Computed example of a mutant assay.
Amino acid sequence: MGEEPLFELYGIVLGNGRIVISNEKMLKFSSRELFVIRKIISLFNDLNIKREKDIISSERGIHEIIFTSVSEDFDIEEIFERVSNAKINQKKAFLRGVYLGCGIISTPPSYHLEFRFEKDAERDFVSHILSQFKIKHSTKPGRIFIKGRENIKDFLYAVKAFHIYTELEEDAVEKSVLNEANRLANFEYANLKRQTDSASKEIKAIKSLIEKGKFESLDPDLKEVAILRLEYPFLSLRELSEKTKGRFSKQEIYYRLRKIESYGE
């Protein structure tokens, strides 16, 4: 895997990441869109970023993921330096991550793309990178604005959103762009909801077995899969299989979780 995913994650961290320090250092992300949280988790997994555990929660339409004891520091000054010295495609990936992290796009008749930042230093740095790609924009405290269809097209081209860029070549195409984005988002959401509902049932069954004192009587392979599900409640079956380093396939994980669920019931 190239370094583009790492720079995309840098952009998300800058636009959305929050350091939380209590008894341990934690990194928190939040979004109204569940697929953004899923994207962040996938990047952490694909980049093999070590952490102690993932804590996901949802309240009042806001989804949140907290990574505890993350092995990477994600120091903002270091991110600034690495992105400044990065290759063109890596900078594009960074801007793509910034958009995922804190970007908001409006609907017609006003074409309006906005980024929101907690610190003006972060705003100024992103503005500097946008200027390198000659993307016209304006700034206010904590904000970057890209206004007008042509300027938004320039940004979409820079971050390699070629499909939407092509459609924006046509007049009054915003409706079809939004419909396509909503269709993809709904499809992703439906998949994630099915996965989340299934994982919730599995965890409920495992906890039921533990409460009834029947967990220790499970076969060793069932116990191993159950512990894995408790440790990684929101990973997909494929990602759980990868955690076993080839011991169990995706289908074998599925079979064992269904068996555990039947025992819990």
Rank of each mutant, 00 (worst) to 15 (best):
K25N: 05
L95R: 03
E114G: 00
Q251S: 13
V225P: 01
E231L: 10
S217K: 10
L113A: 14
I164N: 10
L184T: 08
I55T: 03
S131I: 05
I203V: 15
S31M: 08
L257K: 02
L34K: 03
D120W: 02
L6I: 09
L6R: 07
L43G: 04
D46C: 03
K250P: 06
Y99W: 15
P233N: 08
L178V: 10
E265N: 12
K140H: 09
L34I: 15
E239L: 09
A158S: 12
D54M: 12
F94E: 06
E122I: 02
N48E: 12
E231C: 05
E216Y: 06
K193F: 10
N23D: 15
P141R: 03
K207N: 15
D171A: 02
I79S: 04
P141L: 04
E188V: 04
S198H: 00
G11Q: 00
I88E: 13
E174L: 05
S208I: 13
S176I: 15
R116C: 07
L27G: 01
D54P: 00
G213Y: 09
F248D: 03
Y263S: 02
I210P: 07
Y263R: 11
T244I: 09
R143W: 11
K25M: 14
N45C: 00
L209I: 08
K204P: 00
D197F: 08
S249W: 04
V173P: 04
K207W: 02
I40A: 00
E216T: 14
F115H: 01
C102R: 00
D221R: 08
Y254E: 15
G11N: 06
G15D: 06
F94R: 03
E52L: 10
V98C: 02
L34P: 05
F215D: 03
F125E: 01
S106G: 13
S84C: 09
K160L: 14
G17A: 07
G246S: 05
E72W: 08
L184Y: 06
S262V: 11
L237Y: 14
Q132N: 09
K53A: 11
L6T: 02
S236V: 03
S84T: 14
E59D: 09
I62V: 15
V126P: 00
Y255Q: 12
R238N: 13
R18K: 14
I104G: 00
A158I: 06
A172M: 06
Y157S: 08
Q195R: 08
S30K: 11
S127A: 14
G103C: 08
S200F: 10
K153E: 07
E24Q: 07
E169M: 06
K160T: 10
S57L: 01
D219A: 08
S22E: 15
S217Y: 14
S106A: 14
I62K: 02
